[in-house]
Design a binder for these strands. Structure first.
Length: 397
DNA sequence: GTCAATTCACATGAAAGAGACCACGGTCTAGTG
DNA sequence: CTAGACCGTGGTCTCTTTCATGTGAATTGACGA
């Protein structure tokens, strides 16, 4: 039976030893090539162990440069040594939708971490503030608050939250609060209130991208744990590293590549990962990402994407906002759904730009106005699949 | 030919509404002694 | 008499609409050589 064969081969993988090592939630024991950064941060945080207030810290670097990993590592090390001192280190990822993407919810989440409950909604925000202060003031303690992806907070709300957070220290009598902000976006600090900026970035640390050699190093150590012996073919690691290095030195990307290449090899029933599977893996990752974005997007967004796809199918590769809106209206009519205003469509288009589904840039056509010039960034092989997904979701025949 | 004013087709911002969710406090109802 | 059901009020959150203002260069038209 085929099924049995599939299960059998799954049970006794001849490729993987421990696939988890290549997954993004895995925490390795050592973090190569980040010694300098970790030491710097450690020396900044060390005063906390002697019950002194630590400086606020701002960490930035591209995705997959080991920021979060390093901070987690330091968090654990700190906590290991702090059984006597009343030190608390709390980590919060501000990007998680529905968990921590508004002022209210972040506070609610923090209060929860300190062992109290607060309703998910319905309370005035300043009351939640007071509750938070009350909770952390219950006993004398040192708190280090790690805010991952702080730039998201500012993007979604204003910098008011950060300002309040910085100011909170002055309202606390017993407790001391320090903040570690982590951000992918280097320019993020430029657009916030100078007062917040100066207090948030009392110390700054930059995580530079990994270069190809460092990536190879990381991959090698992980591959040894993840794969069985003699599975990884000649040059495979070098190639993964090279591809990822091209993409801003993103280690996560490199690990994904290696894992997916392994999965593809396994599915083929082969015992050795060869170079060609890496190219395939690269394509597959890209494809899966795009399709899953399209699939999970709300209907209105799908309609806009469909409009853009149809336009770029039809003729040119340069599309303007107005054209998209017309095509979108057409799609709406066909699908019998309500139409949104052009204002909204403009925003949706720029969201697609951020997601990487399209490339859009604002240009001026002089006398003939100012628009976005839009180009579809989905490769041809996926377009058909994408269309199918959208058509199904919009209820077309 | 040169220069500033004009003009288009949107971008970009701000404010505010709609509808969903929820807490809180007061009132009503039904079950209990 | 009291616990629970049921409202109304007031708050947040997301997605939108409405109204307002901004904008960059092709075009236009006046001007001078």
């Amino acid at each position: 039976m085929k099924v049995q064969k599939i299960f059998d081969s799954f049970m006794s993988s001849n490729i993987f030893n421990n696939k988890g090592v290549l997954q993004s939630n895995y925490t390795p024991e050592t973090i190569p090539h980040r010694d300098k950064e970790i030491e710097q941060i450690a020396s900044i945080l060390a005063p906390a162990l002697r019950q002194e207030r630590t400086s606020n810290l701002f960490v930035y670097g591209n995705t997959g440069t080991g920021k979060t990993l390093s901070i987690h590592y330091l968090k654990n090390e700190l906590l290991k040594r702090s059984d006597k001192s009343p030190l608390r280190v709390e980590y919060l990822n501000c990007k998680l939708r529905k968990v921590a993407d508004t002022e209210y919810r972040i506070l609610a989440e923090l209060i929860k971490k300190f062992g109290h409950e607060v309703p998910a909604t319905g309370l005035p925000t300043d009351q939640v503030y007071n509750k938070f202060i009350e909770v952390i003031e219950q006993e004398k303690q040192f708190i280090i608050l790690i805010l991952d992806e702080v730039d998201q907070i500012v993007k979604k709300m204003s910098d008011g939250f950060l300002y309040n957070l910085m100011r909170i220290n002055t309202e606390l009598s017993k407790t001391q609060l320090s903040v570690i902000g982590i951000s992918n976006d280097v320019t993020f600090l430029d657009n916030i209130d100078p007062r917040v900026r100066s207090s948030l970035s009392e110390e700054e640390i930059i995580f530079p991208p990994y270069n190809a050699l460092q990536l190879q190093d990381i991959l090698k150590t992980r591959a040894e744990l993840a794969f069985k012996k003699n599975v990884v073919g000649e040059g495979v690691i070098a190639k993964c590293a090279a591809i990822a290095a091209r993409e801003h030195g993103d280690a996560r990307r490199a690990l994904d590549l290696l894992r997916v290449a392994g999965e593809l090899t396994e599915r083929e029933g082969l015992a050795k990962i060869s170079l060609k599977y890496i190219d395939q893996a690269n394509a597959k990752i890209e494809k899966d990402k795009i399709l899953s974005i399209i699939e999970t997007e709300p209907k209105q967004f799908q309609a806009v994407i469909l409009a853009i796809i149809e336009l770029s199918d039809k003729n040119k590769d340069k599309i303007f906002t107005g054209e998209v809106y017309q095509a979108y209206q057409d799609v709406c009519k066909r699908a019998r759904m309500e139409m949104l205003t052009q204002r909204r469509i403009g925003d949706i288009i720029s969201e697609f730009d951020m997601l990487g589904l399209i490339n859009a840039s604002v240009i001026s056509k002089g006398r003939y106005g100012k628009t976005r010039e839009i180009k579809l960034a989905i490769s041809k092989q996926i377009i058909e699949r994408a269309k199918k997904i959208i058509n199904e979701s919009l209820g077309f025949a």
